[in-house]
Design a protein around this nucleic acid. Structure first.
Length: 263
DNA sequence: CTCCATGTTTAGAA
DNA sequence: CTTCTAAACATGGA
């Protein structure tokens, strides 16, 4: 589930295990996933380099190279990062890095909906992409300002990467569930207390998810996440959860605990 | 075979 | 201008 918590987990993994290793060879085997440069050029630019640091903005992971360039990874719907034994990369590996010490790093993306890019710098990339502020960089005051400038469905707002970066279908459901706000509720109709509840839900959900390494099995019992499917029941009131279409996706929510769309 | 899936972009409609 | 919907992308699982 490559939303902010998943990508943050990948980043931490990269930060603790992959810095300062010499990249002996790189292989980009899905040319259409590579942006900004050709697959060959990317391989050439990675070979011989080391990762000097990591960064993240929303769902984008940045691996800073020791020559100043930045490897940009987006994970689409099914992407992940995995460490590999020498030359034994998992199936679905789209970018394989072989370190000089024999270990390897695999960017795996079965559905090829992710993207691999090379940027000059992180801030410039974020700007050019038109991404909003990272979800975890928002204090209540700033969150209120964003809410005041927004109309339309609450879920669509949270998922709009140009408004707030990092939240996708699953975690927007979770945040609104924790805040007890209906996914279709108009942002302009939210009272100050409700905006605060959404902000609190956002921070609680994302921080908690990061703390458990974005592993669904380790989420708190009061999370909607494991129950967002038909036959799923609300962890709070035990009623059946419901699904509707919102912002082009399936939104799961508890009709009993989450206020009506119109209020 | 059909439907659906954790994401983004684009086109066109309100 | 902002917001919403559908379609496309590529692939696998139910």
């Amino acid at each position: 589930m490559p939303e902010l918590p998943d990508v943050e987990s990948f980043r931490r993994d990269l930060e603790t295990h992959d810095l300062r290793r010499r990249i002996a060879a790189a292989r980009a085997s899905a040319p259409r996933m590579v942006e900004d440069v050709s697959a060959r050029e990317l391989e050439r630019r990675l070979a011989g380099r080391r990762f000097a640091g990591t960064g993240r903005h929303g769902k984008y992971l940045f691996a800073h190279l020791d020559d100043g360039a930045v490897l940009v990874l987006h994970f689409g719907m099914t992407g992940c990062l995995a460490h590999a034994q020498a030359r034994r990369f998992p199936s679905g590996t789209r970018l394989a890095l072989e370190y000089a010490d024999g270990r390897g790093l695999a960017y795996v993306c079965r559905r090829k909906l992710g993207r691999i890019g090379l940027a000059e710098d992180q801030a410039g990339f974020v700007d050019a992409r038109g991404l909003g502020p990272d979800a975890l960089a928002l204090d209540l005051r700033r969150f209120r300002k964003l809410a005041a400038a927004r109309r339309g469905g609450a879920k669509a707002w949270l998922m709009d990467q140009g408004a707030i970066a990092g939240i996708g279908n699953v975690y927007s459901d979770e945040i609104l569930y924790q805040a007890r706000v209906h996914p279709l509720r108009g942002v302009e109709t939210l009272g100050p207390d409700e905006v605060r509840a959404v902000h609190r839900g956002l921070r609680k959900v994302l921080h908690k998810a990061i703390a458990v390494g974005a592993d669904p099995q380790r989420m708190p019992r009061n999370f909607l996440l494991p129950h967002r499917h038909r036959n799923g029941r609300c962890p709070s009131c035990d009623r059946r959860v419901a699904s509707i279409k919102a912002a082009g996706r399936t939104a799961w929510y508890c009709p009993s605990c989450q206020s009506s769309p119109v209020r």
